[in-house]
Structure formats: C-alpha cells, structure tokens
C-alpha cells in the first residue's frame, strides 16, 4: 500500500492503495465514480476510457501509480451539466441502446475532437475503433461526432 495523490475531474484527493491498482477500480470502487465501465480488463473494448491529460486512455490498464500527478477526467467530469457538445450530440441522435459502452465512446469521441476538431470519416473510424458496442450503434455514433464537430466549429 502507498499514498497517491490524484487529480480527478479537477479535484485533488489522496488515496492509500496498492500501486498496481488500475485506475478503473480506483474510480469505481474507491471514488464511487461508476460512469467509467469495466468491459474487458485488457484495453480491448474501450468501455473504461478516460482522459489522461486530455488524451483518451484505457483506465483498466493504467496503474494508479502512473495516474498520480496527472489530470484525469472521467465521464462525470466531462461537463458540469451534461452539456458538452459530444453529450448534446449524443442526446440529439438518441445514440444509446443498452448504453453500457457509451461513456467510453463519448470519452474517445471528445478526446478526438480535442485534438482534431474536424475529423474525416476515416479519422473518426480510426479513433473509435478501440470502442466496441455490441448493440451496434456505430452509425449513430459517427453521426453524433459529426454533429458535435459542426457545433464546435460553428
């Protein structure tokens, strides 16, 4: 066990944990931020995607020791009132079916738009290829990303 200082959604907090504890379980078990989902545990499905200094990472593969001292944003911290352009676009297109993977999809999409405000179809596909949706909402996700992109550029 060791003491780690984490900045999650702009809030600093200290936790006493095994250094190898993945950020995913720190968020879910210890900080009760359950919007970040467990899907595979091996960085293959993207359900656990969070922002690490603004970039999309899989929190199931990020030990708390590496997360410490960096800016972490989860779905709960993406916007104050659920009104991030990507969230708004998701609501407009009524994207979710079961909804379980959607937080991870939204975090990947918002990280993409952070670095590339006007992505092409293939850039969207490349950025989103690590996020699996068994319900098959892919075409709506792509449409929502384009809407969010348009609204940010407008």
């Amino acid at each position: 066990m060791a003491e780690f200082s984490l900045t999650i959604n702009g809030k600093k907090q200290s936790l006493d944990l095994d250094p190898d504890t993945p950020l995913l379980w720190v968020l879910r078990d210890h900080l009760k931020l359950v919007g970040t989902k467990y899907g595979c545990g091996i960085a293959q499905c993207g359900a656990c995607t969070v922002h690490f200094n603004g970039s999309a990472v899989r929190s199931c593969q990020l030990p708390v020791s590496s997360a410490a001292g960096n800016e972490i944003t989860t779905i709960e911290g993406l916007s104050e009132n659920g009104d991030h352009p990507v969230q708004k676009a998701w609501l407009e297109h009524d994207v979710p079916q079961c909804g379980y993977c959607q937080a991870g999809q939204i975090m990947s999409a918002s990280a993409l738009l952070n670095r590339n405000p006007n992505p092409s179809d293939s850039e969207i596909e490349n950025a989103m290829n690590g996020n699996i949706c068994r319900c098959g909402t892919y075409t709506r996700i792509k449409a929502a990303i384009k809407t969010a992109s348009d609204s940010q550029l407008a």
Partner: peptide
C-alpha cells in the same frame, strides 16, 4: 419519436447498471 428516458443519465455516467450497485 420520443427520446430514451435514461439517455441523460447514460451520457453523464450516472449509476444505472447492476455492476454500478453500491
């Protein structure tokens, strides 16, 4: 067409699923 009644909770990551139960 009416929007999914849980959509806002889904896109803001609020607890909804069995695995979220605490």
């Amino acid at each position: 067409s009416r929007k999914n009644v849980d959509a806002k909770k889904i896109v803001t990551g609020q607890p909804l699923y069995g695995i979220d139960v605490d």
